[in-house]
């Protein structure tokens, strides 16, 4: 497939103008990158996140066209692909960043396609002269892949004018501009804090082309996520347990420190704990189905339900 596509491209190469009407097999090019596999996986494994998926498709399309244009020698400049992910905790920022690294790798935009995930601690030093080597070390590790800076707004602390974060930001800016071919930087954090971060660092804002906002999940989506997580671990809900968990989600969402999918995962972990306890207490003959199935009592025993009762 790819050979066919490249033949067409090389035919079109000698003169752009006279061959301007040569049909280009976009589909063949698309198939040759196996990008559809990644996008399908994205659809299968990430519930909801409509705007994000659309944006990723757009970026994938842009990269595809850009690749064709490069083959035809219409362009030599690489597009800037630094990104900013904003959203509440547990909305899938890191997961999407990992997928993004894969997509960029499939499109040969980055050479290795690995993800280096860091926070302020990994970038900013503790004393004068410590920050630059530290930041550079991280950048060197991330080269050929994606540098994911979680809670990026912590880099800039305006209340402390001698904070070394600013130095780290300056090095990052320089690398984001000069080594565009070598790495893609993805910043992540809460929306309001990231907005404030960009206000005080306009240079950063202008170097980031893609701002993606991760929406919160709806209860239905969270339930779908829970079922997906359980399937991955070879568990399943009994039909009553599913209803119980739907209630659990609604109540959990009202409570403070709700972290979307992360809370769901923790809730499930605790339910598995209680299931194990229940099976152990029962001690009678167990079937394989018992090991797989989560029952409503595993979920209803949760603190979430008890607190509600106390309040009433």
């Amino acid at each position: 497939m790819s050979e066919q596509a490249s033949n067409k491209v090389s035919e079109a190469n000698p003169s752009i103008v006279s061959d301007g009407d040569t049909p280009i097999d976009l589909q063949a090019e698309f198939n040759s990158t196996h990008i559809q596999d990644v996008l399908d996986e994205l659809d299968r494994e990430l519930i909801g996140l409509k705007p994000i998926k659309t944006r990723i498709r757009e970026i994938a399309a842009l990269l595809l066209v850009e690749r064709l244009r490069r083959k035809m020698e219409l362009t030599s400049e690489t597009p800037t692909l630094h990104m900013n992910f904003t959203g509440n905790p547990g909305t899938g920022k890191t997961t999407v960043a990992m997928r993004m690294a894969e997509i960029l790798h499939k499109h040969e935009y980055v050479r290795e396609g690995h993800l280096v995930s860091v926070t302020r601690d990994d970038l900013v030093g503790q004393y004068i002269g410590h920050t630059a080597p530290k930041t550079k070390e991280v950048i060197k590790k991330a080269m050929g892949g994606v540098l994911f800076i979680d809670e990026a707004y912590y880099l800039y602390k305006p209340e402390n004018e001698r904070d070394y974060g600013q130095e780290s930001i300056e090095i990052l800016l320089q690398v984001m501009e000069n080594n565009r071919d070598d790495l893609v930087v993805i910043l992540a954090g809460y929306k309001d804090k990231m907005d404030r971060f960009f206000q005080s660092n306009p240079g950063m804002r202008s170097r980031i082309a893609h701002h993606l906002d991760f929406p919160d999940y709806t209860p239905e989506e969270l339930l779908a996520i829970a079922k997906l997580l359980l399937t991955q671990q070879n568990y399943r809900f009994s039909s009553d347990a599913e209803k119980a968990f739907a209630q659990y989600i609604e109540r959990r969402m009202q409570q403070p420190h709700f972290a979307n999918a992360r809370s769901i995962r923790n809730g499930l972990d605790r339910a598995r704990l209680r299931q194990a306890n229940r099976l152990f207490a029962k001690k009678s003959s167990l079937k394989k189905m018992d090991l797989i199935t989560l029952e409503p009592e595993d979920i209803l025993a949760s603190r979430v339900f008890q607190q509600q009762i106390q309040e009433v």
């Binding site: 290795e112 080269m143 050929g144």
Partner: peptide, 12 residues
Amino acid sequence: MFDLKDPAGILM
């Protein structure tokens, strides 16, 4: 330089 994946960092 440990744990590098890509030569670009070393060339830098």
